[in-house]
Simulated scan of single mutants.
Amino acid sequence: MALTFYWYPNCGTCQKAKKWLNDHQLTYTEIHIVENPPSRDKITEMYQKSGLELKKFFNTSGHKYRELGLKDKMKSATEQELMDLLASDGMLIKRPLLTNGEKVTVGFKADAFEKVWL
């Protein structure tokens, strides 16, 4: 299956992930995560297939996360409310997000990419 690479071009981690993908000659479609954030349904699908906690999908070091006080809200918000937040603003999503429709990685660590994508 084709890879979809959700990224933010100004993000250093995203740039490293893109270089890794190119170095390993993997074909992907890139999507600017802020201009075209994944839909709520797409986020839900990726979350369910990832096996990760939902909070792993949040860019916890981002300005927007802190501005909205999400650290405290994470404890009491429902899964639906958190999905809605993620779908509302691409800057809230940890990046890059990489998926082939079956597998999902959030963020970039070369060893994790090797295990999942090679």
Rank of each mutant, 00 (worst) to 15 (best):
H24K: 11
K73V: 05
K64V: 15
E102I: 10
R66V: 08
M91K: 13
G101T: 08
T4Y: 08
L85D: 06
W20I: 05
N100H: 00
H32F: 09
L68W: 07
L3Q: 08
L54M: 06
K49P: 02
R95K: 08
G51H: 05
F113D: 03
I33M: 00
Y28K: 08
E114L: 05
Y47Q: 09
L82Y: 10
S88D: 05
T13S: 01
T99L: 09
I93W: 03
T78A: 03
K42L: 14
N100Y: 04
V34T: 12
S50T: 08
F58Q: 10
Y6L: 04
E53N: 11
Y8W: 12
F58S: 07
L52T: 06
E67H: 14
F113P: 03
E81R: 07
K94V: 00
D41V: 11
P96Y: 01
N22K: 14
G51Q: 11
T105M: 13
R95G: 05
L97Y: 09
K64M: 13
K103V: 07
E102F: 01
A87G: 06
N100K: 05
E53H: 13
H63Y: 11
T60L: 00
G69P: 00
Q80C: 09
P37K: 11
S88I: 04
K42I: 10
L92V: 08
L54R: 06
A112L: 13
K103Y: 03
V106R: 06
Q15H: 11
K55Q: 12
R40I: 14
V116D: 04
I93K: 02
L52S: 12
L3E: 01
E79F: 04
K49H: 14
G101H: 06
G51I: 08
V34K: 10
A110M: 01
T27C: 09
Y8A: 05
D41R: 11
R40W: 01
E79G: 10
M83K: 13
M83R: 12
K109N: 10
I93S: 06
W20Q: 02
C14G: 09
E81G: 03
Q48V: 01
A110G: 00
R66Q: 13
K19N: 12
W7A: 14
K75G: 09
K42Y: 07
G107M: 02
K109H: 08
K103L: 11
Y47G: 01
E53I: 03
E35A: 15
S39D: 12
G107E: 06
Y8I: 02
N36S: 12
L118H: 13
T78Q: 12
H24E: 01
I93M: 05
V104I: 10
W117H: 04
K56E: 13
F113N: 05
N10C: 07
T29M: 09
T44K: 14
E35W: 05
P9M: 04
